[in-house]
Design a protein around this nucleic acid. Structure first.
Lengths: 346, 346
DNA sequence: TCCAGTTGGACGTTTTTTGTCCCATTGAAT
DNA sequence: ATTCAATGGGACAAAAAACGTCCAACTGGA
């Protein structure tokens, strides 16, 4: 932050919040356009009145337009959005937090987006967009990309821009269907990534909860073996991080499994592995899929997870996460993580 | 204005006015400290309530302190004031206006201070302060300084800082007492300048309205002759610009004089000369004092006049003003001048 | 053709701001 | 030593602004 901005803030302390609020609204409109007042108020986590007041102002400033279909961002609005991007980050102290988290989590890079996706649904899209941008930047030299499932991963696929198709890209489902909602399965996500980028995809279909013998047999199948080989060649892994209990529930895990997860003190989950608060593996779902060692061999790993509720899970997972991991998260999670680590130190 | 600030303004249009208002309040406190709420509200041209609201905020921001003697600016406040100086000027478009006026008036430099001294008394002090700074910057190479009278000139003397005394400075009253209030006579002003700077001063005492013979005789007096010689060696002239009619009234001019001034269409007055709207000399008070030619020989001339009501007079005087003149004025006068010249073009 | 979603308008209610007092103190001038 | 004008803080009714919440008319896509 330069001295001028600092002085400005001294003289107008209310500016900071106001700027962040308006920026967020403008950004959300940009993301969801065309969008109406009511829908926007829901997605942005503000009252209709407030949204109305602010959008009226944004219109007067010719940053947005209001048509019968909804509000859209003008080219001027886009410019403002771009111009203030760094400044808003500074204002929220996000840049500072990124550096702190980087050292706390022991990884190469952390990207924090404003607000809390637990409170404001639109933040998920922002996270998705940022992850998409980062991923796209890797496309040049990384062709084999393993993806997991989850709603966060789905958000990324939505934000992948349809640039010039790259047929050499290969998206690999990191896991079989793990009993999740079809829309959020790794298979579906891999397909969505491929569709958006023009690449191809490989899916892995395996029933859950196989007996040991059946599992061993399946692993000998050529289709499955091929996938296992692909995992070895993976350049990039993109994955979410889940809360252990939530995941277990969502996956309709058996009582036996739930018991193991619970008794082991599992906190987080990633690619079917469950980790306790110290990052130790407590349990792993027995199914075909990428192995932790294979993940560690990837040149870049994008871990994506946001919302204050994910803070504990993130801390847990990053105890033993590979160094070349990049975490894309939000302000809510970041603040909570810092809060938790501060408490730990006391 | 840089792109960031422009974008900020787009998103927060109310910021501009707010910033200017608070800056002005802070600046006024700085100038008049210690000062109370009520006095400040008068001098700053705002209601007591508003002043109270803003000063409460400024205190919370630790930019000012409130003691029983009144409010004072903290060191942080001073920093903010300094840091935002240029920005506030940009915001008010003063820099632009300065350049415009420079070319319109055909002089080397114009300095415009915010607000209108007609509306806000404190602006006079700001003008005085700026003029004082500019004058002080000349002290190194200019030693003989001629000063005229008037309330504006008095404002400058109040703002001259008492740096290390410079005994080589010589302040010369540009005129005798012209029937004005003693406090605002050139003689008094010259003395005040000298006192503040540690220099010496020369006064000129001559009764008004002398007969032609008496005048001629006086001019032969050694004391008077000495002054006339000094005028020839003047390095810097500092003078105000007045409205012709106002000056005539203030000086209790005779009916005969008033008639000449009026019939001649006099608009402005400076060092006892009256000018019409085209800058032509309509009348001059017959008394000893600096001559227009002597003014033109000075290396620098500071012309100081503010307030919308002075706009016409300023325009009139600058029709034939020497090029090395620097005009120090305020926003009120500047806007009015631009308005008038625009009308003239149509 | 219908329907979900849109904007713009309206209005009573709540909250904030504003104008205007008074009061106990204080610090400088008499 | 005493006055006295100026100070900040407190208080409060009135005015204004903001707010929450509807409704009506409209539109664009299914």
């Amino acid at each position: 932050m330069d001295a001028l901005s600092a002085a400005q803030q001294k003289l107008m302390p209310e500016m900071s919040e106001l700027l962040k609020k308006r920026y967020q609204i403008l950004q959300t409109i940009n993301l969801e356009q065309p969008i109406g007042r009511r829908t926007l108020s829901e997605v942005a986590g503000a009252t209709e009145r407030e949204i109305r007041k602010e959008t009226d102002l944004l219109r007067n400033q010719q940053l947005i337009e209001m048509k019968t279909a909804g509000m859209t961002v003008t080219s001027q609005g886009l410019e403002v959005l771009e111009e203030l991007k760094v400044f808003v980050r500074e204002l929220s102290g996000l840049t500072d937090m990124e550096i702190q988290l980087q050292s706390i989590l022991g990884i190469s890079k952390v990207v924090i987006l404003p607000q809390d996706s637990d409170e404001i649904p639109a933040v998920k899209s922002h996270i998705g967009k940022e992850a998409a941008r980062l991923l796209e930047a890797l496309f040049g030299r990384c062709k084999k990309i393993a993806v997991t499932g989850g709603s966060t991963m789905a958000a990324i696929s939505k934000e992948l821009s349809i640039g010039k198709p790259d047929r050499t890209l290969q998206f690999i489902a990191a896991r079989g269907g793990l009993g999740e909602d079809v829309l959020h399965q790794a298979n579906t996500i891999a397909a969505a990534f491929a569709e958006k980028t023009g690449g191809s995809f490989k899916t892995l279909y395996l029933p859950d909860h196989l007996s040991a013998e059946a599992f061993a047999m399946m692993m000998k199948e050529p289709v499955i073996k091929e996938m296992m080989d692909l995992y070895d060649q993976t350049d990039v892994v993109v994955h979410g991080i889940g809360n252990a209990e939530e995941m277990a529930v969502r996956r309709h895990s058996s009582l036996e499994e739930v018991e193991k997860i619970r008794s082991g003190g599992a906190v987080s989950e990633a690619f079917g592995y469950y980790f306790d608060k110290d990052g130790k593996i407590v349990y792993r779902i027995r199914t075909a899929g990428i192995q932790l060692e294979q993940v560690q061999k990837a040149s870049t790993i994008l871990a994506v997870a946001g919302g204050g509720s994910k803070a504990r899970a993130i801390l847990s997972y990053f105890n033993n996460a590979p160094t070349p991991t990049v975490l894309i998260t939000d302000e809510g999670a970041a603040r909570k993580i810092l809060e938790l680590t501060k408490k730990l130190e006391e």
